[in-house]
């Protein structure tokens, strides 16, 4: 464990707590893409089921349980408790355009052609693009509540911090994971436009608004 990865994980943890806080305090999931949240459940379940046969550390297991549990809970909140505040008519991204290519890529690029490793690859590829329905929704509505942008910023910073972690690990441990690194760079890249508006507007106290 190094500082970049620890801060990345904490940023990921924080993003989910911010999202839960937003939903609970406003009693609304307005502005949140159900499709993106459902994709995260698929990502976490596909990747973290190794919880049952591979023990790394208490930290590792606790985080995996938290990510699976919290993402399922968020889906429950959106689908049941705050269902009237969820507007599917603006959440129109076609997720089959993400699922099918990720499934194909995971069959081609994996570290071992076995179900668990293919699922791992699939989760890495899917995570890298899972934010697209959310960003697409943001693009459509053109604006977002500040708290929603804090959630997205924390989520983007998480994977961005994994990049220096991989560079650090390459030089200190000699390990390199080309699948995770490639997908991680793509994932971070998808946030660049968002980061630009977030850092130049929201953090200066202005409203998050995209140019028309």
């Amino acid at each position: 464990m190094n500082l970049f990865r620890l801060l990345g994980d904490l940023s990921h943890l924080a993003s989910i707590l911010v999202l839960l806080h937003k939903i609970q305090t406003s009693r609304s999931c307005r502005g949140i893409s159900f499709k993106t949240q459902a994709l995260y459940v698929a990502v976490f379940v596909a990747r973290y089921l190794d919880l049952f046969w591979r023990y790394i550390s208490l930290y590792n297991s606790a985080m995996k349980v938290f990510f699976i549990g919290s993402s399922c809970y968020i889906l429950y909140l959106m689908k049941y408790r705050y269902r009237p505040t969820n507007d599917p008519s603006i959440d129109t991204f076609r997720i089959e355009y993400l699922l099918v290519p990720c499934a194909i890529l995971s069959l081609i690029f994996n570290y071992n052609f076995m179900p668990t490793e293919i699922l791992w690859s699939f989760s890495i590829f899917l995570e890298s693009v899972a934010i697209l329905p959310q960003l697409f929704m943001l693009q459509r509505t053109g604006e977002a509540e500040a708290i929603t942008t804090h959630y997205l910023a924390a989520l983007g910073i998480y994977r961005a911090l994994y990049i220096p972690n991989w560079i650090y690990r390459y030089f200190t441990e000699g390990v390199i994971d080309p699948i995770a690194v490639t997908a991680g760079i793509v994932q971070t890249g998808l946030y660049l436009d968002f980061f630009y508006v977030y850092f130049t507007k929201v953090l200066q106290g202005q409203k998050f608004e995209l140019p028309a």
Partner: peptide
């Protein structure tokens, strides 16, 4: 071994 990816990352 191609399966030697670091398995401690989340």
């Amino acid at each position: 071994n191609p399966a030697d990816r670091p398995k401690d990352e989340l």
